[in-house]
Design a protein around this nucleic acid. Structure first.
Lengths: 120, 120
DNA sequence: TTGATCTATGCCGATATCAGCATATATTGA
DNA sequence: TCAATATATGCTGATATCGGCATAGATCAA
């Protein structure tokens, strides 16, 4: 994986399932690369590359411990994602309201959908 | 944009800035493709393609109104994103705690970081 | 210093994605 | 039926991304 130049974007970083997995593992606490490799069943270089992407967007940080690097979550950047997606809460909360709204849309479609009364 | 075969994934769908823009516009209410084109300053085919992706992951739905298609948000799928990212709330809430934790890590690093007392 | 371990980087090929352009497919109205 | 409008789809080239593999760099132990 060549040095990610463009993708300094949290949304993109998190769109990768493996990277979400890595973050989920790190939520348990600091982990060395080797431990992540073991638990992900992924090759070591791939894990290092994903970690690099995560580091570049500020989602993880690393500290040296002997010959190992211990990575941990630095999740502040996820706040942007949380704030964005939270704007859509009303679309899954109050599921009953959604059903109702859907029904209304149905009605509208059948009733005044094309044109109020104008049909061949 | 060829028919997206693989990317039936909400995280990926939402990783695209334009698609988030589209959703944000649709949050104001139903919109026809043409209106989105106008407000996004993007070419019509591109908008249609992004809408298709959003539709395939269930983030929007369309209804016919004359020769136009009115798209609206169907945000229930975003719940998955919200739930995932919410697991990381502690990383940006209580900023003071974070500072404290960071300080502790610093201490650990300096104190017992490499090896308790073993240093050239 | 030498060798072993742990991690990062570089290169490769396959695939996906995006924008741009042309064009096909409705749908409406004359 | 024919033209106009609105939207969808197909094709193309440029770029990004991912995994696999080899290897470089760092650190520790003897």
């Amino acid at each position: 994986m060549a040095p990610p130049i463009v993708s300094a974007d949290v949304f993109l970083a998190v769109a990768e399932p493996r990277r979400r997995q890595i973050l989920d593992l790190l939520r348990e606490g600091e982990r060395a690369v080797g431990e992540l490799v073991e638990r992900l069943g992924l090759a070591q270089p791939q894990v290092s590359k994903h970690l690099r992407v995560l580091k570049e967007v500020g989602l993880v940080c690393a500290r040296k411990a002997g010959q190992r690097r211990l990575y941990s979550v630095q999740g502040a950047e996820l706040r942007r994602v949380h704030e964005w997606v939270s704007q859509y809460e009303r679309y899954w909360e109050h599921q009953l309201d959604r059903v109702k709204e859907r029904a209304e849309r149905e009605t509208r479609r059948r009733g005044a959908g094309n044109k109020p009364g104008g049909k061949p």
